[in-house]
Simulated scan of single mutants.
Amino acid sequence: MSLKPLAEQTVVVTGASSGIGLATARMAVERGARVVLVARDAAVLEAEAARMAERGGKAAVAVADVGERAAVEAAVAKAVEAFGGFDTWVNVAGITIYGELWRVEERDHERLMRTNFWGTVNGSLAAVEHLRDKGGAVVNVGSVASDLAFPLQGMYCASKHAVKGFTDALRMELLQEGAPVGVTLVKPASIDTPLPHRARNYMDREPTLPPPLYRPEEVAEAILHAAVHPRREIYVGGAAAALSGLKAAAPNAYDLLAPAISTFERRGERPRDPEGALHGPKNGGQVRGDYPGPVLRSAYTRAGLNPVATTLLATGASVAAALVLGRRRR
């Protein structure tokens, strides 16, 4: 399908008060798009919109808890009021919990699913109602956890599995209807955002993310590419594609990585903030986390956004899979 150039679009971004959402909104404005910032933290959003305006950008604010459908509908109305509508809707809003599944309180499990899964559902369905006739894009930010799981964040992984299933079904139904709406799932590896600081934490210290970590701007680049050139899925970070491939090819071997993943998650030395931002806005306004190691660009992702490189990568993956299967048969 043919979509508008980014500079001619209005882009709605949920989870726009920090991390990937904030990085995406800033990058979109820098490239000439009008942006609607959606999150729970009014003060952070207003300050960011003012900053964008000072630099010549156009931004509107919609304070909303994406877990509530009425609040998402109000964000749609704000986009219509401010800019006459929108062309791309990006579902980024998400949170995590650190702790064994049996230790986490039911209300915390439910709140995570309300934000991560139902927030994506609410945003996607509201966006489709607006876009199904005129066309546009829905971009959902899943995770490498959409394909696999890891310990101490079990319900987060469950929510990202659910996001993938919902996104795939939504794409199929829109194709069946012939609606000109692109639907893309973006699946990042570990990204250097404030996610660990904002998590609900049952551990005895603040967690860290397992390496390698990539820049939030790498995810923003993939999201904005999908706003103009819809793709089925985009992995951000070669590590995401590699881990997903390992899980698919050798699930039992992947499960054996659990102790190593847990060790990395427990390596933090800072005192923990047990409540985090699960039940209310907190610690917003930052794109980056404070990971002490190297934070990478993703040559894999940048190459994959190029059509020629994508074909070569797909061909190489098919050849590799054929070789593996051939060896197994022998």
Results as ranks from 00 to 15, higher is better:
residue 208 T to W: 12
residue 208 T to N: 10
residue 127 A to Y: 04
residue 134 K to H: 09
residue 137 A to S: 13
residue 185 L to H: 03
residue 129 E to R: 05
residue 149 A to I: 05
residue 188 P to C: 08
residue 182 G to W: 06
residue 207 P to F: 02
residue 114 R to M: 10
residue 105 E to W: 08
residue 162 A to E: 08
residue 208 T to L: 12
residue 119 G to V: 07
residue 113 M to K: 02
residue 109 H to F: 06
residue 205 R to G: 11
residue 167 T to Y: 01
residue 113 M to A: 06
residue 110 E to R: 14
residue 169 A to W: 07
residue 168 D to M: 06
residue 160 K to G: 01
residue 142 G to F: 00
residue 191 I to N: 03
residue 126 A to C: 11
residue 119 G to W: 05
residue 203 M to R: 07
residue 178 G to K: 06
residue 168 D to V: 05
residue 181 V to Q: 06
residue 190 S to Q: 04
residue 135 G to W: 10
residue 146 S to C: 07
residue 205 R to S: 11
residue 140 N to I: 03
residue 167 T to Q: 01
residue 149 A to S: 15
residue 103 R to V: 05
residue 192 D to H: 12
residue 195 L to K: 00
residue 137 A to I: 09
residue 169 A to Y: 10
residue 139 V to Q: 02
residue 168 D to E: 14
residue 181 V to N: 03
residue 131 L to Y: 05
residue 113 M to L: 13
residue 118 W to L: 15
residue 164 K to D: 13
residue 204 D to W: 08
residue 217 E to P: 01
residue 124 S to T: 11
residue 105 E to F: 04
residue 183 V to K: 03
residue 180 P to I: 13
residue 105 E to Q: 15
residue 158 A to Y: 10
residue 161 H to V: 04
residue 106 E to W: 02
residue 156 Y to W: 12
residue 213 L to T: 12
residue 143 S to Q: 06
residue 120 T to V: 10
residue 129 E to G: 00
residue 125 L to D: 03
residue 166 F to D: 06
residue 123 G to D: 06
residue 209 L to I: 12
residue 195 L to Y: 02
residue 168 D to I: 07
residue 107 R to N: 05
residue 147 D to C: 08
residue 150 F to N: 05
residue 164 K to Q: 15
residue 210 P to C: 15
residue 158 A to M: 13
residue 178 G to E: 04
residue 214 Y to D: 07
residue 201 N to L: 08
residue 213 L to P: 02
residue 104 V to T: 15
residue 131 L to S: 05
residue 175 L to A: 11
residue 218 E to V: 11
residue 143 S to K: 01
residue 203 M to D: 13
residue 147 D to Y: 14
residue 156 Y to R: 08
residue 140 N to P: 01
residue 185 L to D: 02
residue 103 R to W: 14
residue 198 R to A: 07
residue 112 L to K: 00
residue 200 R to Y: 12
residue 195 L to R: 00
residue 138 V to M: 08
residue 187 K to C: 04
residue 176 Q to W: 04
residue 161 H to G: 03
residue 166 F to C: 08
residue 196 P to Q: 11
residue 127 A to M: 07
residue 155 M to I: 15
residue 112 L to P: 00
residue 219 V to Y: 01
residue 174 L to H: 01
residue 162 A to K: 05
residue 163 V to A: 04
residue 213 L to V: 15
residue 189 A to I: 00
residue 176 Q to K: 14
residue 205 R to H: 12
residue 211 P to A: 14
residue 116 N to G: 11
residue 177 E to Q: 06
residue 172 M to T: 13
residue 162 A to V: 03
residue 170 L to P: 05
residue 169 A to G: 13
residue 109 H to N: 07
residue 159 S to I: 08
residue 168 D to H: 08
residue 177 E to H: 07
residue 198 R to G: 04
residue 169 A to N: 09
residue 124 S to L: 04
residue 123 G to L: 09
residue 124 S to Y: 02
residue 214 Y to E: 07
residue 157 C to A: 15
residue 218 E to T: 13
residue 170 L to D: 10
residue 103 R to H: 11
residue 105 E to G: 13
residue 173 E to A: 12
residue 118 W to T: 11
residue 210 P to I: 12
residue 125 L to V: 01
residue 192 D to G: 13
residue 123 G to Q: 04
residue 172 M to I: 10
residue 110 E to S: 11
residue 204 D to N: 14
residue 159 S to F: 10
residue 189 A to V: 03
residue 135 G to C: 13
residue 201 N to T: 09
residue 158 A to I: 11
